[in-house]
Simulated assay, not measured.
Amino acid sequence: MARPHRIVLVRHGESEGNADDSVYEREPDHALALTRTGVHQAETAGKELRALFGQERVSVYVSPYRRTHETLRAFDLAPDRVRVREEPRLREQDWGNWQDREDVRLQKAYRDAYGHFFYRFAQGESGADVYDRVGAFLESLFRSFEAPDHPPNVLIVTHGLTMRLFCMRWFHWSVAEFEALSNPGNGEIRVLELGADGKYTLDRPFTHWRDPEPYGVTG
């Protein structure tokens, strides 16, 4: 099995929805573009990624949303060294279709009180649903490592919640630990690096907005 040297997760740059949440009332979530700030964030991340990958090949998986595709293009990776696959299982958490801003703000308040992992948006998904499809994607990813010529790098261009849930699934974090984590900022990068012991470690932690609740299964 040709496991990659590193698996890199990147959150998309700032989108129109990040800048103005009223846009969800008139535009589909998946169709929202990057702002100028978002393009700059993606270009800055691209400089870091090009330095990280050097001349090595990269297997890229990108969420099907417009803002993630635009983020990937802004990275300006060498086309002869990347293999790009659109991966719907890496999409944003579904919140429904066109959204009423005040209703979404109310549901977000409910989610904060109920818990981000288990709270289900009325016409959408819970964090647990996203966890399940991230887990299904990981099974496909592991199978891809069986190819003897698999690139030494994997790049995943996705969304903040999906990044946290990917790491939760990979490192077997508890729900309580997940609930204590903040989203990475737009354009932020996390790297899972393969060590000499055959295990992956995260290059830097996610910010904690609180200490994990002292409950859950231990042992």
Rank of each mutant, 00 (worst) to 15 (best):
D80V: 04
R57D: 15
V82W: 07
D129T: 01
D129S: 01
R133W: 03
Y65I: 04
P88V: 03
L90A: 01
F137Y: 02
D80P: 00
Q93V: 13
R143D: 15
K108Q: 13
D132H: 02
S126G: 03
F118Q: 12
D100K: 07
E92F: 05
Q123L: 13
L141H: 04
R91H: 11
N97H: 15
P88E: 05
V134H: 00
E70Y: 08
G115E: 02
R133C: 00
V62F: 02
R83V: 14
T68Y: 04
A113F: 04
A51S: 15
V104A: 08
V58E: 10
V84Q: 02
R81Y: 08
E87W: 01
K108R: 14
P79F: 11
H69L: 14
G124W: 05
D103Q: 12
A113P: 00
R91T: 12
S59V: 06
G54D: 09
R143T: 15
F137M: 01
L141E: 02
H69C: 07
R91S: 10
W95D: 05
L106G: 00
F137G: 00
D80Q: 09
P64F: 04
E70V: 09
Y119A: 01
W98N: 11
R111F: 07
F53M: 10
A51L: 13
R111N: 10
Y131L: 11
